[in-house]
């Protein structure tokens, strides 16, 4: 029981971090049709900027400032890079962000070096939030969950309840009409891109402190974020939310289970040993394959339901 609850909490909190990351990606995709390959790179920049700012002004001010910095950076990238490429179509935009990911990673290395930086948890978030039986649940993870939920709420409210949110929605589905009504559509795109990257930056502030802030953190998390966005349904924020939780929980529980195909066969009376053909497949335990389950999920999802969980468009 203890194990189950703790694993569930671990799964949910990891899922929520994934959601923070993928929400920005989903937002940008649903509104601009741009699949931002550099999204995880902005996540990394968020962590590094928060680290650098945190040294001067402390963790909590940096929590607010770093996403802003990343957002401005994203807006600049949109204004002076993506906009130029926009006329060549979506593939060119995708390739642009693909190159951008390389570039950002290298720039981070040039500025902050190759090693991990000592980005530490502020003291107030250190230690256990509560102890369940004998396992403690860290405060930081609780904070992570809180921030993610607040973020989901505020993005949702902003998009549906504010004027600017409505303009954004209008500009994205009917750009010409919105333009004709006097709205500056390119500026809306810039805001959306900046906003999306700011969300990635926010995830970076949290993720960097929860895990490790080093130059390969973007490359290691990048593919997973895509999985979440695709499984959830391209462009669906709620879908991304569900997919993040799903992947977080599935991955966490899969690690806990030592089942293997061979073991299952043994239950029905077939004994598998080293002489059996394909032994290496039978002996693989679920826990060993846990980290690749998201990709399996992605492939299966794309085969059987290309729209994703809650997506509306297939291509």
């Amino acid at each position: 029981m203890e194990f189950f609850v703790i694993s569930l909490l671990n799964g949910v909190s990891y899922g929520l971090l994934l959601f923070m990351l993928s929400s920005g990606l989903t937002l940008i995709f649903s509104m601009m049709g741009v699949l931002n390959f550099a999204h995880a790179a902005f996540y990394m920049v968020g962590a590094y900027v928060a680290y650098a700012l945190g040294l001067k002004i402390g963790f909590f001010p940096a929590l607010f400032l770093a996403p802003l910095v990343v957002g401005v950076l994203g807006a600049l990238v949109e204004r002076y890079g993506l906009r130029t490429v926009h006329r060549y179509g979506h593939v060119a935009e995708l390739l642009f962000t693909f190159g951008l990911a390389y570039l950002i990673e290298e720039l981070v290395k040039v500025v902050w070096g190759l090693a991990a930086v000592p980005y530490r948890v502020p003291e107030i978030l250190e230690g256990p939030l509560f102890t369940l039986y004998s396992t403690s649940f860290p405060k930081l993870r609780g904070f992570m969950m809180l921030v993610a939920l607040l973020m989901l709420l505020s993005v949702f409210l902003m998009l549906t309840r504010t004027r600017i949110g409505l303009v954004i929605q209008a500009a994205l589905t009917h750009p010409e009409t919105a333009q004709a009504l006097g709205h500056n559509v390119p500026r809306v795109f810039m805001l959306v891109f900046g906003g999306g990257t700011a969300l990635a930056g926010l995830a970076g502030v949290i993720g960097g402190v929860a895990f490790i802030t080093e130059p390969s953190m973007a490359a290691s998390l990048g593919p997973i974020v895509f999985v979440v966005a695709v499984v959830g349904g391209m462009g669906s924020l709620v879908g991304a939310f569900l997919a993040s939780l799903l992947i977080g929980i599935v991955q966490t529980f899969a690690i806990a289970v030592d089942w293997s195909l061979g073991g299952m066969l043994a239950v029905i009376g077939i004994v598998v040993n080293e002489q059996t053909p394909l032994y290496s497949l039978w002996k693989l335990q679920l826990s060993q394959v846990a980290p690749v389950l998201p990709y399996l999920l992605l492939v299966l999802m794309l085969i059987f339901r290309p729209k994703g969980l809650l997506g509306t468009r297939a291509d």
Partner: peptide, 21 residues
């Protein structure tokens, strides 16, 4: 006993709770 993929695991919390369990 666990073998996990090289340099792919981002969150070790599940492994830790497994060790604990």
């Amino acid at each position: 006993e666990d073998l996990h993929p090289l340099a792919q695991v981002k969150d070790f919390a599940p492994y830790v709770s497994k060790i604990k369990a």
